[in-house]
Design a protein around this nucleic acid. Structure first.
Length: 466
RNA sequence: GGCCCCGUCGUCUAGCGGUUUAGGACGCCAGGUUCUCAUCCUGGAGAUCACGGGUUCGAAUCCCGUCGGGGUCACCA
């Protein structure tokens, strides 16, 4: 049974777009193999915990349509799925390690720790804990009984090669001399990430650990833990990390990173996910636009490249535009209505406007800019119309007489006026366009005027710039 | 700095020893359609496959080195 997971930490405003990427891959991989996808909340850092973050992460994931088979919300047989509720479990396993001499208590002060590391840095050797407490465990235990704060450390043996096979990168080898005696249980009694992730992945029967590249260097620590327990290893696969344009790790200082931001901008969930699918992976037939089913069908970890791709919002916008063009008009109407709930848009007008703007916007947030004039009279005009009053008046007079108010008819009438007045079409229609919408760039004019209705158009033509 | 990962057009990528004058997509430029914009169509610029050595009849593709980029070195995940 294939079981994958993502393990977000509620330490930010929302789920990071890079985590959404990891989530999509994990989810798709589980789907492909008739497996299960689990969301586990890793809330062991009490100092960085952000109120409401867990809920936000879960709801954003849901908004993107990535539904876990097991999680704090839907439950499952391997719960609890929140690490802060699993403390006794970690404690038990830590004790097991201690009894097997694979781990030990440490009561060194932070001052001593930094001093030791500083000293090692000066000597140009890998700064790490010097195992001082390991050699005096009886003494340490007595101190602990008296109430001194302590941590539990993994006892890593020296000069040993840890080798693992990464499904994306092949064999990766690291010597334990580069590894610190990792803290397993912190002084507040909470496990560290390394402890919790291994215990939980084991207990939750995670078969494939698919996570970002930044975890490669801690994977040996995890493997050592699995070995200390005598547990079978999961398969590891480290995905490339998404980059800023300057190639550094995608960060909020240089890029919008919260997954919900993209939704707020009017990107469609499926378009974002489709774009993300193309990060480091490509369709065997080089297709760029494909839905979940096709991705699930074609995705393989072996095809993932190990290079860190730059997240290109421009291409995302193009892709979103592609999705918008393909979306059903009735569905699109609802999307727009939902996106602009605060404006209480007239549903009928939205519906009529859709064929006009569908090929013109790349995200929902552009709708108001291009179609707002259908709902409100323009207050500003991008071109001065004071010299055009006579022309606008004659157009208004002419249109007043039109009986069948259709785009074609409106267009014909206006063309006739333009010819009578000997005004070139380009200039003529731009003047009307500005009078009607206030803008130089608009959806097709005749159709827009049809939507606005005769009376409104005539009033706008007469009232423009007056 | 140590360790680890990576290196094909500006960006996302195809390529897995010969079919490649290195293909596609985004973006960019030009033209066409058009009352604006967009869509659509056509064309174009853009990568000596980081560099240097090998291996081979033959290398973007395999090996080594150099350089460059990134990640990681916490009682954070």
């Amino acid at each position: 049974m294939i079981r994958t997971r993502i393990a977000p930490s509620p330490t930010g405003d929302d789920i990071h777009i890079g985590n959404l990427y990891t989530a999509y891959i994990n989810w798709a991989f589980a789907q492909k193999n008739d497996g299960k996808f689990i969301v586990r909340i890793e809330d062991t850092d009490r100092t960085r915990l952000v109120e409401g973050a867990e809920q936000k992460i879960l709801s954003t994931l849901n908004a993107y349509g990535i539904k876990p088979d097991e999680s704090v919300e839907v439950g499952g047989e391997f719960g609890p799925y929140r690490q802060s509720e699993r403390l006794p479990i970690y404690k038990k396993y830590a004790e097991e390690l201690i009894s097997k001499n694979k781990a030990y208590f440490c009561i060194c002060s932070r001052e001593r720790l930094t001093n030791v590391r500083e000293e090692m840095k000066v000597q140009k050797i890998v700064p790490k804990y010097d195992k001082y407490c390991l050699g005096r465990q009886d003494e340490v235990k007595k101190e602990i009984e008296k109430g001194i704060e302590y941590v539990v450390r993994l006892n890593i043996s020296e000069n040993t090669e840890v080798v693992f096979d990464d499904l994306i990168r092949g064999e990766i080898k690291i010597n334990t001399d580069n590894l610190d005696d990792q803290v397993l249980i912190k002084s507040d009694g909470f496990p560290t990430y390394h402890m919790a992730v291994v215990v939980d992945d084991y207990l939750m029967k995670i078969s494939h650990v698919i996570r970002a590249e930044e975890w490669i260097s801690s994977t040996p620590k995890h493997i050592l833990l699995y070995q200390a327990f005598g547990w079978e290893l999961p398969v590891f696969a480290h995905l490339p990390i998404l980059r800023n344009p300057d190639k550094s790790k995608l960060s909020k200082r240089k890029n919008p990173v919260w997954a919900s931001w993209y939704l707020e901008q009017g990107f469609l969930p499926k378009a974002v996910l489709n774009y993300l699918a193309l990060m480091g992976w490509s369709h065997p037939e080089e297709k760029e636009i494909f839905d979940h089913d096709e991705f699930i069908k074609e995705f393989t970890l072996e095809r993932v490249r190990a290079v860190g791709p730059v997240f290109d919002v421009k291409k995302l916008e193009w892709m979103n535009g592609q999705y918008i063009m393909k979306i059903q008009n009735s569905k699109f109407k609802i999307q727009i209505l939902n996106f602009y709930t605060d404006k209480h848009l007239d549903e009928k007008i939205v519906e009529q406007s859709i064929p006009l703007i569908k090929e013109r916007i790349k995200k929902l947030s552009e709708y108001w800019n291009i179609a707002g004039f259908l709902f409100e009279r323009p207050e500003n005009f991008e071109k001065d119309l004071s010299e055009q009053k006579e022309l606008l008046t004659s157009v208004a007079v002419r249109l007043k007489k039109v009986e069948s108010w259709t785009a074609d008819q409106i267009g014909e009438e206006m063309q006739e006026v333009a010819q009578e007045k000997e005004v070139p079409f380009g200039k003529f229609f731009m003047t009307i366009r500005i009078a009607i919408s206030g803008k130089k760039i608009t959806p097709p004019l005749n159709e827009s005027m049809e939507i606005l209705g005769k009376e409104e158009c005539v009033e706008r033509l007469l009232g423009a710039n007056s």
